[in-house]
Simulated scan of single mutants.
Amino acid sequence: MQKTKINVIAETSLLAGLAMILDLLTQPMSLGPWISFSFKMVPIFILAFRRGIKPAMLAGLIWGILQVAFGEAAGNWLNLTQGFLEYFVAFSFVGIGGLVKPWLDKAMTKKETFKGLSLIILGIFLGTISRYFIHFIAGIIFWGSYAPKGQSALLYSSIINGSSWLGETLACSIALWLLYPFINIFLKK
């Protein structure tokens, strides 16, 4: 039992670190500060599908902390509440994709490829929509004053955060779709 806990902690830390490395490496793929086509959340999703919500949310939190520690959050931190929401809460919420784990385990055991892939896409959707919902709320509350004249904070946040959500959801979905033939290896305990 103790060995399992150590394995989960080690995997959580390693995959959070890998997410940070992918985040740093895929910065050039961003089409600006708000538009991104990146698969940097893939390690967190792999952990969510392998170990469930709690370890994945912890990995997301560690990733958010690493972003702050490495200065990736610099310039995007307006105040303590906004920074906490967008770097600690939002990144933790990627782990919500692990909600599909019980059904994914069954589909993988029965070798139901279409069902397994569908559940992975659903998990990606749940994790990314949860993360970007927090960014959307923060966008309205904290970034709305940056909206172009005549544009509401709601529309501004929808456009900015919606474009990033779409790009990252597509990138993660494509990456995990391509990895799907090997995913059983990743998901075995």
Rank of each mutant, 00 (worst) to 15 (best):
P102W: 04
S152V: 00
L85D: 07
W143Q: 09
K111I: 00
G64S: 03
L31Y: 14
P148L: 03
M57S: 01
E86D: 15
A147Q: 06
I183Q: 12
S13A: 15
L122S: 10
K5P: 00
S145A: 12
A138F: 01
A175I: 04
I140C: 08
L15M: 14
L119M: 04
K106Q: 14
G98D: 07
G60F: 11
Y180R: 06
F91W: 12
T169G: 05
S152E: 04
A74T: 07
I62N: 08
L58K: 00
A19F: 04
V89K: 03
L179N: 01
V100K: 12
I124D: 14
M29Y: 12
I44S: 11
K189E: 15
L14N: 03
S164H: 08
G95F: 08
K3F: 01
G71N: 10
I96M: 15
I120F: 03
L47H: 04
F125I: 07
S118Q: 03
F186V: 13
L25C: 09
G98F: 05
C172L: 00
Y180K: 05
N79R: 06
C172V: 12
L178W: 09
F70E: 04
G71P: 03
Y132W: 13
L58P: 03
L99F: 15
I141M: 13
V42A: 14
I35R: 05
N7A: 00
P102C: 01
V100D: 14
L25W: 12
G64M: 06
K115W: 08
A138V: 02
I159V: 15
I160F: 13
M108L: 14
L78N: 10
K106W: 13
S38L: 03
S158A: 15
I137W: 09
G32Q: 06
T4V: 05
K110A: 15
G167D: 09
W63C: 09
L104T: 10
I120S: 02
L99W: 08
G162K: 05
P28Y: 13
G32M: 07
K188E: 15
V42F: 14
A153R: 03
T4L: 08
P181W: 10
Y146N: 12
W165G: 06
G71E: 12
I96K: 10
L66G: 05
L61A: 15
F142N: 07
S145H: 08
L170N: 05
T128P: 02
